[in-house]
Design a protein around this nucleic acid. Structure first.
Lengths: 211, 211
DNA sequence: GTCTATAGGTTGATAGAC
DNA sequence: GTCTATCAACCTATAGAC
């Protein structure tokens, strides 16, 4: 019945739980989910297998926790870009951020597809938080809309569609590298950004040529 | 030592092998690879488990065969679009074809990521045949280049980058639907096509406004 | 070619000592 | 809280009859 608040009760940390989470995510990223056994996880984390079952209800519980951890970067997509610079630069920054983000999240997203239960848990998590590519579209599209309002982009342009194209280009480049084991066969991100910026700009400040 | 040619030697078809392949691909697409056991496959295909091992060397051999079957649509990406129509229409057709293609291939691509061996086999297969998104870029980019040569697109535009954006937009829409279990939160493909067509056209035939 | 039956090997999960 | 030891269930793959 006391009212002390600041002292943390009970358990000192010990860090094993986080070690398990980290190890699982790490193994997941570079070996896939097929042979991801609790044994391997325990060994890699330097704990016993029973510890895994102490910290998590079961294998599915562990994986779900890992997913939530691995998907955390998703919330970063919410924040709109800083409009205080050159448009091409803003787009380049956004593209780079998106790519890095996809790079981190993709393995988790893929692993979840292996099992219907995980798939369901994933979609529930995403749906609860209203996550997804549309957040990126909203952020970049919002920035472009501001540009449009400022007369920098032709009013007839569908800025959300343009944003989707940029995001898609970033995404498929990550997929090519991670899933298909190749790189350098697609146009550089910089080219994409410059191209999009040029196409957008042509409507309001470009110098088109006649036939 | 005879020389008869036209009669097909030996085995009558029997179709079990194909039934197994089909069942595996089907189970893979809608349940993931985690609990994809030879038992389930055999049961679903209406054959015994031993038959699976008669037709395929082992589980990995079966999966590899399924992958090659499932990835066959990849070769369709080689054929360039037919230039005998309106540009927007050509792009729309390409976008639709790409989307359908991604829809079929994505589950296989993802399943292969679960296991390093499968991953290696997949990249070998892809690399041998020089497959990948760059083929799509080459096809659509080639078409746009022709448009460019005909004066329909400003010469300064990087058509390959533009092609990548279109392809990426198609891809990420498929990913949203299949992997994240949502739909309708991203701009429609048609909007993307119209937007891209508009942006491309503005360079040579549009009527831009001044500031 | 296809089946049934089973060997051999992994894996997830628990019990109980410390 | 963490460990070792262990079990029951499951899976791949093979042997051998038909």
């Amino acid at each position: 019945m006391s009212t002390e608040i600041p002292k943390r009760r009970g358990r000192p940390p010990s860090g094993q739980r986080e070690a398990i989470l980290r190890s699982t995510l790490e193994l997941l990223r570079d070996r896939g989910i097929a042979k991801l056994t609790t044994r391997e996880i325990a060994r890699h984390a330097g704990v016993s297998e029973a510890s895994v079952y102490y910290h998590f209800s079961d294998r599915a519980g562990l994986l779900q926790a890992v997913f939530e951890e691995g998907l955390q970067p998703l919330s970063l997509l919410a924040q709109p870009p800083n409009p205080d610079s050159d448009r091409a630069e803003v787009l380049a920054r956004a593209a780079q951020t998106l790519s890095q983000f996809f790079d981190e999240v993709l393995p988790v997203l893929i692993a979840a597809q292996s099992d219907p239960e995980l798939q369901a848990a994933l979609t529930a998590y995403i749906s609860e938080r209203d996550l997804g590519p549309h957040r990126g579209v909203a952020a970049i599209g919002g920035y472009l809309r501001a540009q449009q309002a400022a007369g920098e982009i032709d009013p007839s342009v569908d800025v959300d569609a343009a944003a989707l194209m940029l995001i898609g280009a970033c995404f498929i480049r990550v997929v090519e590298r991670q899933l298909m084991g190749q790189a350098g066969r697609l146009p550089e991100l910089e080219r994409v950004v410059i191209t999009l910026d040029g196409l957008l700009g042509a409507g309001a400040r470009g110098s088109p040529e006649s036939r």
